[in-house]
């Protein structure tokens, strides 16, 4: 980062912090500036890092320049061309309401493929989780046995809380399970809150570090 970048970044950071006093024009200006830049970022990356090398360059015949021993792969070119055409279907409804049904084709392909992949992914994620939940209550050390017991108890009560298939408040026993489940859930959510505090503070600390070590130093070097 050069001096001008640091100066502008520092003013922008302070502008964002003025929101704490109340919404103001300074904050809104930088907020809209940021949204515009952020929105322009993704398309640039998609085109430069993926669409050009994977789709457009091969289609336009530039892959002959990049391959060592070039073999014309017509099947791949046709597939790429087809995928680009189907990808354009996303925008058809902006030109013709009559052809808006074409958008559904592109959406279906993307959604269905993601769903198919997700089915595979779910099993890969789920099975090890279930396997490792089966912990021995009687273990080598007392500490481990106690820990495993607490783990299994927490797991059981957390599962029990999310059973909505039947009325769990009918008997005293089921009400007891509900209360204990809530307690375990509160401990988990408390751990989440504690972790969130550290995370949010870290981001603010990084900004303070920037303001002190880069922004103030840049201003100091410009003045003196």
């Amino acid at each position: 980062m050069n001096g001008i970048d640091i100066l502008v970044a520092g003013f922008g950071t302070l502008a964002v912090y003025t929101y704490l006093i109340g919404e103001n024009r300074f904050y809104r200006f930088f907020e809209h500036l940021f949204i515009g830049v952020a929105a322009g970022y993704l398309p640039y990356f998609l085109i430069s890092n993926f669409l050009w090398p994977k789709a457009l360059a091969p289609l336009l015949g530039f892959d002959i320049l990049l391959a060592e021993s070039y073999e014309e792969n017509q099947a791949r070119k046709i597939l790429v061309a087809l995928s680009l055409v189907i990808g354009l279907f996303f925008y058809v409804e902006y030109f013709s309401k009559r052809l808006a049904w074409a958008t559904k084709i592109a959406l279906t392909i993307v959604l269905a493929s993601s769903a198919g992949l997700a089915i595979k992914g779910a099993f890969n994620e789920l099975i090890p989780q279930l396997n490792s939940s089966l912990k021995p209550i009687i273990s080598e050390t007392l500490k481990e046995s106690f820990s495993n017991f607490v783990f299994l108890t927490s797991l059981f009560f957390a599962f029990a809380y999310f059973i909505f298939s039947f009325n769990t408040e009918r008997t005293r026993f089921s009400k007891f399970i509900l209360v204990v489940s809530k307690a375990f859930l509160m401990i988990c959510f408390g751990a989440f809150f504690g972790s969130t505090v550290s995370a949010r503070l870290s981001i603010l600390i990084e900004r303070i570090d920037f303001l002190k070590n880069q922004w103030l130093e840049t201003i100091r070097s410009m003045i003196f």
Binding site: C188, A191, F192, S195, T196, V197, S198, A199, S202
Partner: peptide
């Protein structure tokens, strides 16, 4: 994996 503090649990 390197995570932020939020996703630690």
């Amino acid at each position: 994996h390197g995570c932020t503090s939020i996703t630690v649990p």
